[in-house]
Design a binder for these strands. Structure first.
Length: 277
DNA sequence: GCCCAGGGATGCG
DNA sequence: CGCATCCATGGG
């Protein structure tokens, strides 16, 4: 897939491995607006305006380098799909979500976003995050940036409750008050196992949330986050009624290995979009 | 009113 | 360890 880079624009002609709708709607980003042929995507303090058709994708931004990496445009997804298509469970999901790419989201944004995501639904997650951006993030003119750690340290438990975090409000306040920029930065140089241990030590972060933060915020693809949807998928495919998510996580990681993160996204998008029981 | 959502913390054995 | 129960909140 060839990407043309200009000063303020990326152009992709005949994008075989990139579908904007699929990539934005597969639950890895909560700040975007989209309609039939255009979208606006927000990450950290940046934004990109996208227009798309089957023949062409145009990404406009004043930080092209950031969004080139954000949309993972250096990676060959056709190769990944060729490998994963050999798996009979995955084949229909890849056919459906052929244009999914795993976004390289901002790490701190992922930590906050996925703490909010626990036992929650995507609509409510989006609203809570919007609230935090509007009340604590820098005003960028047309939009508000995702708040920095320093900015969120000014938020109280009450603020988080007003944002709709419910019982996660106290967890968030504690995690934000304890977390330092240095710790966040240091995650980049840790091994996956060290990353997981640190992340799980944060209030509101368990196995699944840690895996999501690693997958979307640290680029670690050898993780398989298991949420309620993946739990349903697993039971449907294996004809079981397994409820032990730790066991499901281990089994799916054993099956998909270093490509677990990709496999998980194809499954999630396919089954959630088709509302499989 | 019940059930569910990209689960985690807690307590109990 | 594993396991059950509880937890805010809003939409279906």
């Amino acid at each position: 897939m060839k990407v043309q880079r200009f000063k303020n624009k990326l152009i992709i002609d005949n994008p075989a491995d990139f579908d904007v709708v699929q990539t934005l709607n597969c639950g890895q980003i909560f700040r975007y607006v989209i309609d039939a042929n255009s979208a606006v995507v927000f990450s950290k303090d940046k934004c990109a305006n996208i227009s798309f058709s089957p023949a062409k994708i145009e990404i406009l931004s004043n930080d092209v380098d950031y969004f080139y990496h954000f949309f993972d445009l250096d990676r060959d997804y056709s190769k990944i799909k060729r490998t994963l298509e050999k798996d009979e469970f995955l084949r229909p999901a890849i056919k459906y979500g052929y244009g999914i790419r795993i976004l390289n989201n901002d790490l701190f944004e992922m930590i906050v976003s996925f703490i909010i995501s626990a036992n929650n639904n995507i609509g409510r997650i989006k609203k809570s995050i919007e609230y935090l951006c509007r009340h604590f993030g820098s005003n960028m003119g047309n939009y508000h940036a995702f708040p920095t750690l320093a900015q969120l340290k000014k938020a109280s438990v009450k603020d988080y409750q007003s944002a709709g975090l419910g019982y996660r409000a106290e967890q968030m306040a504690e995690t934000i008050s304890r977390l330092t920029e240095k710790e966040i930065e240091s995650l980049n140089s840790m091994t996956p196992s060290e990353q997981r241990n640190f992340l799980i030590s944060l209030k509101g972060v368990g196995e699944k949330v840690a895996n999501c933060i690693m997958l979307f915020g640290l680029g670690v693809k050898s993780v398989f986050p298991v949420d309620t949807w993946i739990n349903k998928v697993y039971n449907a495919l294996t004809n079981t009624q397994q409820k032990n998510r730790k066991l499901i996580t281990e089994e799916l990681y054993a099956r998909y290995g270093e490509l677990s993160g990709y496999a998980q996204q194809y499954f999630f998008y396919y089954y959630r979009d088709n509302k499989i029981k």
